[in-house]
Each structure stands twice: as structure tokens, then as C-alpha cells.
Design a protein around this nucleic acid. Structure first.
Lengths: 244, 244
DNA sequence: GCAAAAGTGTTTTCATTACACCCATGT
DNA sequence: ACATGGGTGTAATGAAAACACTTTTGC
């Protein structure tokens, strides 16, 4: 067998690889970032919480498998419009103690958070505040951290933030997305100007105005616009100490 | 079999997946971006050019496999310091007409370009100017385009550019990296200031000065500094037409 | 001297910041 | 009335762009 050429390979010569997807499903609930977790029912890591995921079937791409799993775990009917982003692939030998598993990780962003169906094969499923996520099964802590990093970076230069919002939203809600994911406060007037100055980021809903939960002036409603990238980027305030 | 839980899975129940790595190996030669390609010797796509790559062995991570393949294809002795970046994973059924292949793609950046060894199993291997790359085998055109996009974006906010440079380099050489990958011209004075203003991006080599090829004033030499990220980013000039 | 490439300085332009302030609603 | 959140205005700061200019080398 020659290592380079895939067509000299005997596909049954080696122990097969299993290919799975793992999902970091993120949403905002009550102003805090939450993650969808499932409780494992079997060894290894029985009783531990883990990211939802499952096997890629023989006729599926990883993206298709991820979307299928997402629908199964959340119970959402239409999962086709949701933002799904491939993060990276985790392939260390020994990730799973019983066989060779290569996992393609995805991040999914949900606007509102339906309670997970819970049914299916996991013991239970639930939303957990990102801050409270304890040690997860396998290397899922790392996957989750990578997902958080990636989403935070994406907010700076893409229109991704609207994926956390319902179809119509206020600028205050959009700002909360940024503040929650980044863990920083932003100046409202400046945020507003920046967003409105980016063509195609949001577009106003003509008649719309929504009460923001009782108190305060009703806010104007916006929809996600056609743009996907932010130029120039919306940089998060430096935490102190520049570069690396 | 339940789709969710990987431990209910019979690893021999399905046709196995093969896991490979594909490498987009990029370098600068004579001021132009070049890609390492190999010519395929077997069907499918016999005689077509393709990205180098190969199977992930049972005890390897994808990263390890990529580094091994890189060493084999380039003939470099020490490949441990080179920048290798995981791009994404390509998993569409039908990528490879004969079996199910999931491929983890990497981009590799080389400072100088040794002629590829050519030996091994491919018919031949060579550096090809990025602009002249014709239709490649499999979905490698797309992988290569994704690699180029990613590297271009990385230059904006990481210190990656030094990975294209030898251990000691001039600011003119560093600027050429940006100009070549982005395909734009940059203002030298401004580029210089920006780089020097970013702490840890480059550090001067005390005694060094190199002739830039005969003509012109000898340039000061720099080394890559400890920083990995650029804050604030070094944005490429907008091509005309913003956002979208 | 001239071309070529490195390096310095300066002005203008633009984006971002940091505020102060007004508006509309519920209690 | 006043607390609460939405929305507007504006002056000050800082970074980036544009461009003129000096320096040092090979020919």
C-alpha cells in the first residue's frame, strides 16, 4: 500500500474509522449564553453531559448529518434556515476510548430556545448557561471553547449576530447578542450608528415598533439584510494589553 | 442502531469511511504565489493534477498525517516548525467515485521553495503558479480556493505572513507576501509603520542588513516576533463596493 | 548621474470614542 | 413624576491613506 494514493488503498485493510458530528448549539436565554447538552446513558462517560451529535450516515455529508441531528435534538420542524458553521475536525487517536472516531464539529446558532425534546436516546437534554458548563465527556470542553471563540470572532466581521435573533428584532436585542457573546458592554449610540452605517446588515421593518418588555420607548424593528460580511469590521474593545 | 449515541454503533455494520488529508501547500517564488501539485497516475482522474495528500493511518491524527505527507512530498527534513492550518473537512458523498472518503484539508505555508522530490508514487510533482492552476482532480479546485481565501483573511489579523518568509527577512519581502496573496499594491511607508507599530510582530536583527538583489539601499533585517495576533488588524484595501 | 529600493515626515481624511441630551412608554 | 430603555447630536481622539521627500546602493 502506498500512503499517497488513495486508489491503491484497500478499504477493508485497516480498522475502519467512524465519522461523527458534534454540535455546539448556542442560544440566548434571559440575556445569557446557553448551550444545548445531553446526558450520556452509557459508558464511557455515563452520566456525564456532552454535546449532542451522532454518526454520519453512509449517504450523508457531515453538514447534512449535523442538520439532521440538530432537528432531532431540538425538536424544531424547520431547521433549514438556521446558521450552521463547520468549526474544525477533531481526530486525535484516543478521543473515544473504544474505537477510532473522527468528529467534524459544528456550531449552530438559534434565535429562540425551545425546550429540548429530551426524548430519543440520551437520558435527557437541556439548555445550560455557558458559564456553568462543567467538565464534559470526551474532548467536548475544548470543542465548546473553540465554538465560543469562533462565534466571537465571527461577530466582528460577519453579520452572524442576526442568526441569534428572531426574524424581526430591535437594535437593543442585536446589541445584547454582541455583549453576551463577548462578555463586554458596548456604547449604545455608537453601536447603533455602526450597524446602520453598514449597508445590508439590517433593514428597517416599515410599520414595526415593539415594546421592549413594558418599560421604555418602543423600539423600531429590523430584519436581517442581504449582507454577510462587515466592512469595516465591528471590533470588540481590547481587553487591555494588545497583540499577543 | 440509534443515530445519536456513538456507543450503540456497530463499527462493522456500515461500509467504512476512509479518512484522508489534502494539502494546499503554498509558497512564493519570484514574487508569485505557487502551489504544490502532483500528477495522478491512476484512475479516476489519471493524468490530472491534484493536491498532495493521503490516508490518515490508524494511529495518527489528521495533523500528524498532514505533516508526514508534507515531509514526503516536499522532501524537507524538518517540517516541524512549518505553519500548518486546518481548513475544513470535505465530506460530500461522491467526492471520490469509488468509495466514501472524508477529507480533512490543510493549508501549509513554506518560506522557500525546494523543488519537490517528485519520487514516491505520484507521476510527478511540481510548483505551479496559482493563477495557472487548471481544473484539478476531485474537488481540489474548491479546496485550493478555500485555502487561498483563508490565508488571505488570516493575513489581516494574524502574524501568519512571516511563515512565508525565511528566518530573517526585510520589510519589503514581508510586504510582498501581502501584495502577492491579496493581489493588491500597498503603500510602503504605511505598511512599514503599521508592522513596526504592532508589538511582537517583527523584531530587528541587530547587525543585519541585506542587499535586496543588487539595486537599491540595503534593507534592515527582521525576525518573526512572539506575537501571533494583530491588534488592530491590517485590513486589505476594499476592492470597491462595501459589505454585501 | 541615474535608476532602484529603503526609509522618514507631514498633511488630510475618516472611523471610533465618550459623552450629553431628548423621547416615549409603564408604573 | 420618574424610572427605563430608545434614539440623536457633537466634540475629541486616534488610526489609516496619500503623497512628497531623503538616503544608499549598483550600474
Amino acid at each position: 500500500m502506498r500512503g499517497h494514493d488513495r486508489h491503491a488503498y484497500d478499504k477493508y485493510a485497516y480498522e475502519p474509522f467512524a465519522v461523527t458530528v458534534d454540535l455546539a448549539v448556542l442560544t440566548l436565554r434571559a440575556g445569557a449564553l446557553h448551550v444545548l447538552l445531553v446526558e450520556r446513558g452509557q459508558e464511557p462517560y455515563a452520566g456525564r453531559w456532552a454535546l449532542p451529535g451522532g454518526f454520519v450516515l453512509p449517504d450523508e455529508s457531515a453538514e447534512t448529518a449535523a442538520r439532521r441531528e440538530l432537528a432531532e435534538e431540538t425538536g424544531l420542524k424547520d431547521v433549514s434556515g438556521l446558521h450552521l458553521e463547520q468549526l474544525r475536525t477533531y481526530s486525535e487517536p484516543g478521543r473515544d476510548p473504544r474505537m477510532r472516531v473522527v468528529s467534524v464539529a459544528f456550531a449552530a446558532l438559534l434565535p429562540h430556545a425551545p425546550e429540548p425534546t429530551g426524548g430519543g436516546d440520551a437520558l435527557q437534554a437541556r439548555w445550560q448557561p455557558y458559564e456553568d458548563v462543567g467538565p464534559l465527556a470526551f474532548d467536548h470542553d475544548r470543542i465548546l471553547a473553540d465554538a465560543h471563540d469562533r462565534i466571537g470572532a465571527d461577530l466582528e466581521r460577519t453579520c452572524l449576530a442576526t442568526a441569534f435573533c428572531p426574524p424581526e428584532f430591535t437594535l437593543g436585542e442585536l446589541q445584547q447578542v454582541y455583549e453576551t457573546v463577548w462578555g463586554t458592554g458596548l456604547d449604545r449610540p455608537n453601536f447603533r450608528r455602526k450597524v446602520l452605517a453598514t449597508p445590508g446588515f439590517v433593514e428597517p421593518v416599515p410599520g414595526g415598533a415593539r415594546l421592549t418588555g413594558g418599560r421604555g420607548k418602543p423600539a423600531a424593528l429590523y430584519r436581517a439584510g442581504p449582507a454577510t460580511a462587515l466592512h469595516p469590521p465591528l471590533l470588540r474593545p481590547p481587553r487591555e494589553g494588545r497583540s499577543a
